[in-house]
Simulated scan of single mutants.
Amino acid sequence: MVILIWICLLVDVAAAVFLLLSSMSSGQDAAGRGMVMLPILLLLGLAAISYYLMQKHSMGWSLAVSGLPVIVILYLLFISVT
């Protein structure tokens, strides 16, 4: 279960980094970059909470906190590819 939690944490952080890099490289104005910052902060916050819960040996809650954004990211990836 710990490996699954680490995978979810890595996906959350990778999605936050991808959003950050895509907002910096595109021709968005300040409002567009500002709207992208909330999901970035949420992803990083959930990853931090999940890591904290994992250190407190609450593996079920840690997986739930880090797994929910992963499910949403995978769904968005699925509908964007098909």
Rank of each mutant, 00 (worst) to 15 (best):
M1F: 12
M1W: 10
I3A: 11
I3L: 05
L4P: 01
L4C: 01
I5P: 10
W6V: 07
W6N: 11
I7S: 15
I7H: 03
I7N: 04
C8G: 00
C8I: 03
L9M: 08
L10T: 02
V11F: 12
D12I: 09
A16V: 07
A16S: 12
V17H: 14
V17L: 15
F18P: 01
F18W: 01
L20F: 05
L21V: 10
L21K: 05
S22R: 12
S23Y: 02
M24P: 01
S25I: 09
S26F: 07
S26W: 08
G27Q: 09
G27C: 04
G27F: 05
Q28G: 12
Q28V: 01
Q28I: 09
G32V: 10
G32I: 07
G34N: 13
V36F: 12
V36S: 05
M37R: 06
M37P: 02
L38A: 11
L38V: 14
P39T: 11
P39E: 06
I40C: 14
L41C: 13
L41S: 04
L42C: 10
L42M: 07
L43P: 06
L43F: 10
L43W: 11
G45C: 00
G45D: 05
G45A: 01
A47S: 15
A48H: 04
I49C: 05
I49A: 15
S50F: 00
S50H: 02
S50K: 03
S50Q: 00
Y51R: 03
L53C: 00
M54W: 05
Q55C: 14
Q55W: 07
K56F: 05
H57P: 00
H57E: 11
S58V: 10
M59R: 04
M59P: 01
M59W: 02
G60P: 02
W61N: 06
W61S: 04
L63G: 15
A64P: 01
V65C: 13
S66C: 13
S66E: 08
I71K: 12
V72W: 14
L74W: 11
Y75L: 11
L77C: 06
F78D: 05
I79G: 01
I79A: 03
I79F: 08
S80E: 02
S80H: 07
S80C: 02
T82H: 06
T82P: 02
